[in-house]
Design a protein around this nucleic acid. Sequence first.
DNA 1: ATAATATGTTAGATGCATCTAATATTTTAA
DNA 2: TTAAAATATTAGATGCATCTAACATATTAT
Lengths: 217, 217
Amino acid sequence: MGSLTEENYIKSVYALSQATGEVYVSELAKKLDVKLPSVNSMMKRMATKKLVAYAPYKGIKLTEKGKKEALAIIRKHRLAELFLVKVMGLGWEEVHDIAEQLEHVNSSRFYERIDELLNNPKFDPHGEPIPDSNGKIHTKKRTSLIDLAEGLTATITAVTEDEKSFLDHLNAKGLQIGDVVIIKKRELFDGSITLQHKSKKEILLTHQVAERIWVEV
Amino acid sequence: MGSLTEENYIKSVYALSQATGEVYVSELAKKLDVKLPSVNSMMKRMATKKLVAYAPYKGIKLTEKGKKEALAIIRKHRLAELFLVKVMGLGWEEVHDIAEQLEHVNSSRFYERIDELLNNPKFDPHGEPIPDSNGKIHTKKRTSLIDLAEGLTATITAVTEDEKSFLDHLNAKGLQIGDVVIIKKRELFDGSITLQHKSKKEILLTHQVAERIWVEV
DNA sequence: ATAATATGTTAGATGCATCTAATATTTTAA
DNA sequence: TTAAAATATTAGATGCATCTAACATATTAT
């Protein structure tokens, strides 16, 4: 097991590499709020441990071993967030910092049990997929209604909450899985969204509701 | 906030001082599985931070500040253990190592919520009192039936479980709060205990049941 | 009361993770 | 295409937490 610091480096390299494939020392330094030489010296150490491939003045890439570790940490982070919300009843906005700490807990039993209690969830509440215990991601990120720009057309594929009250709410609005909608207006002020429905009706959804509706464009 | 290492030193000093009041470098070194000079140099550092009072060749004592930190950690440890058992359904024997990690989580919200979910518990499942959020311990350790030697007489004062099935079990055995019992025999093999009841009947309790019954001698 | 034993301290080194200051390389722009 | 700007590396230092080897103080036992 690597140190806490090492785990944070791995996680950041992974996150930054998602966009570009390669990560630069300066990006990492910024993300981790340390100076360039700290990153440089850490990369040397991590390279000898075969966690990253790293050549001077070139970009940083995770090795397979590094990627596996990154995914294990991400799995723990996302399971922890979901657990804090669903089981412990904490607010979505307050769980990130706690999950940042819980992701470093070293106990397969602990996370096995969380996974069980949550019924082997596939996505966290942001639609991000949760890697399985072998570090495999089986599905792509889901897109929520709140991720779409005005004017786009999308099909509703799923919803996060399976609580009756939430489904009742959607029914009352006349929305169902499979419906095709157009994003008419996104309100910057409160994040609410107006949809154009196939039935020609306009439907207003609050941010809170819209973020729980998954779509395909 | 101190480092993880520092927190572990504080906790160990507190635990060792419970018996004797003073702690010796060699005891600490043994408990933490480090060499004497490591303890010595850590004590110097912790003394400058006013966490311990420490004079060369004399014993180590926690300051008020140190005690407060120790109790905060112990509170978190005991709440975590109880949470892992009661809420997450883990076995009592497997939670200690996880709690050793969770006790270092820095989030008052997290522990506030655990405390709520457990209904502000006063004791952990071993009868150890849980300090309150100000680091005050209001009650002494409780004694369980399994802590008593053969021949002792004791009064039953409380039980851990308030599940109906457990209380039914005690009823069926003819035991109630307030009953006076004598420890007749402790079976080393399986930890079961035979009681002499006031009704003259002999009652056999398994270890599992006996450890949940609190007594006063 | 002194020698032997146990316990504790100092000195000096190591690895991790960080920093500042100085230097080198790469990219970009004049 | 060379100078300026941006980015990266090396050198050398610091604090934490640990170690071994050498030395110091207490305790105990003869």
